[in-house]
């Protein structure tokens, strides 16, 4: 058969270089994306509008205590997420909020002016298909 170019029909040593290059690209992309992509959420705690603490959920299992305008709040971190376990405030709204685990969610204690917010990872708002909630 006459051809424009005659190809090599058997695998050659240099093919390995192409395979290596593609593999390197795959691994490289994977590492890069893992590095910047949400390998776990960060919890950001602020009191009176100032950031007082920041920790990674994956590496911080256990309890933490904060003093917010006279109220003691105990924050519990587990594999499921983070919640306010105990609060000295009168409303207990923060305790009732329960466990949060997705980026963009928050727990708030109004009397203590305490906000715990999950950041990092990918923002997914308040649920599978809602960006915000009113009411």
């Amino acid at each position: 058969m006459n051809m424009k170019r005659r190809p090599k029909l058997r695998p050659a040593a240099w093919d390995g270089a192409v395979v290596g290059l593609v593999l390197a690209l795959a691994v490289g992309c994977g590492v890069l994306l893992r590095g910047n992509g949400g390998s776990g959420e960060m919890a950001v705690v602020s009191i009176n509008g100032e950031e007082v603490d920041r920790f990674s959920l994956a590496e911080s299992a256990g309890k933490r205590e904060y003093l917010a305008n006279g109220y003691v709040l105990v924050v519990a971190v587990s594999s499921e997420g983070v919640r306010v376990a105990e609060a000295g405030c009168p409303t207990q709204d923060c305790v009732h909020t329960g466990v949060i685990s997705r980026s963009g969610q928050s727990i708030v204690c109004l009397p203590g002016r305490f906000i715990l917010r999950l950041a990092g990872g990918t923002e997914r708002g308040n649920g599978p298909d809602v960006d915000a909630v009113i009411g």
Partner: peptide, 11 residues
């Protein structure tokens, strides 16, 4: 020149 059909196709 060094590449066979396989290398070209994989690329």
């Amino acid at each position: 020149r060094g590449l066979s059909l396989y290398g070209v196709s994989i690329g």
